[in-house]
Nucleic acid binder design. Structure first.
Lengths: 251, 251
DNA sequence: CGTTTCCTTGACTTAACTCAAGAGGAGTGG
DNA sequence: CCACTCCTCTTGAGTTAAGTCAAGGAAACG
């Protein structure tokens, strides 16, 4: 349940992929040394049409990306948990094509453009770690496409729960099978492309099958394997398997 | 209708974002100088579980990414048109979490890992162009999420047609409002998360509204504005607006 | 020129949506 | 401390968009 030390979440995260040399580690720590910023719950970090100033690193709290259609329909595109980098190199696409909001109060650090470039210039390892971050994000987005396109309501909801549990586990925010999920059923509806009413019915169904317990923010997977089965969840797309083992400073 | 010169599609594509210096241009040309490979129609370029050797550049033909669930349901995740880079730095995620197949006969070039790294090391412009490519791909994936989550069948199909037209236009494969779309209605069904029967009905509907003409591979948007309206299509997510104007070799 | 693939249409079924109303909390102010 | 509001969750009844199943026709292919 206790989150990883706040000191440097970016380092913690990137080290899932690469073991850095000392100078690289120092540079990453410097990059995150900026003043911490805060957004209140249900406010936006950045809006569609804005120019991103740099890359945002979520230190605490949950954020989400969303996109709104002309007629007001809204789709949640992604969730960001503590330790996530929002839009690595997002400033390259000069204008945001979607918005990012805070689900809970969020603390974050803005890493300016030149700092990111300096990191990338340090050598292939840091650069590749940044790519790794962006590519796992893309893999998650692909899986959401599959989820929305092929799975039915119950499978879809189960799949989202599975993904959140696995991702929270990486950042040490799961205790056994319990974690905090600060989402309303309406949030889940916007993420899974269904109505809040139907989300409710599917939650009831998962409860009645003794797969989950969920009250307020307290979530527990009573039978994670069962939940994964319902969802046809295969965690391969999260690419969690080569944490720190893939490349290291000694070759 | 005539495609951009085959000589170097990667260069053509990246120059939509950056105007390169001579040495950069030369390096990119070298990277694509590998022997052209070919895949037959409806065969796979790479399968889920494989280790990508490098980055694939589509020279000719259409490819598509897809993912299959345990029970056989299949979702098409993306289409790749001539000039597209498949999985920039895909080798970083050591194992493919999905497959890539050929819709038509496809000719492509495999750019090996070290060549990509050499390109990235040339300096920020080339590196940023590669990021730009990956990030626009991610933006498209996000839009597909919105499409599947929020739009109904008619809107969804219209949106996909709009996207394809806009993307084909960039590579010079649209003549007026006419282009080749080598997809079956079953392909469209797998991309839009609906049944082939329902795709057919929606195609009929678009025809009867005089929005499209489509026979064999010959596609024509009779009223592109109307089609965009139906789809609530906003091309901003394709980030086509700063072609070559953003960064150039002279600062 | 036969075979396979793709498209088309109709009749019926179903998963998910809509509308509506009530219950349970959480927070606020009198 | 109670009354109030607001928000989220819950449940029921009726509707609809999309799916299923089935069969015929057109086109492409080898």
């Amino acid at each position: 349940m206790s989150p990883a030390p706040l000191a440097n979440r970016l380092l913690t995260r990137l080290q899932h992929y690469v073991v850095f040399a000392d100078d690289e580690r120092a540079a990453i720590e410097t990059a995150c040394a900026g003043p911490p910023l805060a957004v209140r719950q249900r406010r936006d970090l950045i809006r569609e049409g804005d120019r991103p100033r740099g890359v945002n690193l979520i230190v605490d709290g949950w954020a989400f990306r969303y996109k709104t259609l002309e007629d007001g329909r809204r789709q949640i595109i992604a969730f960001h948990l503590p330790g996530d980098l929002c839009d690595v190199h997002g400033y390259i696409l000069r204008e945001m094509d979607h918005s990012v909001g805070a689900l809970t109060p969020v603390r974050y650090v803005e890493i300016p453009r030149d700092q990111i470039e300096a990191l990338a210039a340090l050598g292939p390892r840091v650069n590749q770690a940044l790519w790794w971050d962006a590519l796992t994000g893309a893999a998650i987005q692909r899986e959401w496409t599959v989820n929305l396109g092929q799975r039915d309501a119950l499978e879809r909801l189960s799949h989202l729960f599975c993904e959140l549990i696995f991702r929270l586990r990486v950042v040490g925010m799961v205790d056994g099978a319990r974690c905090e999920i600060p989402l309303t059923q309406t949030d889940l509806a916007e993420a899974t492309g269904m109505t809040p009413v139907h989300v409710n019915r599917m939650v009831q169904e998962l409860r009645s099958r003794n797969l989950i317990r969920w009250k307020g923010r307290e979530f527990e997977a009573l039978d994670l394997d069962g939940l994964c089965d319902v969802a046809m969840f295969n965690p391969a797309y999260l690419h969690l398997d080569h944490e720190g083992r893939h490349l290291d400073a000694n070759g």
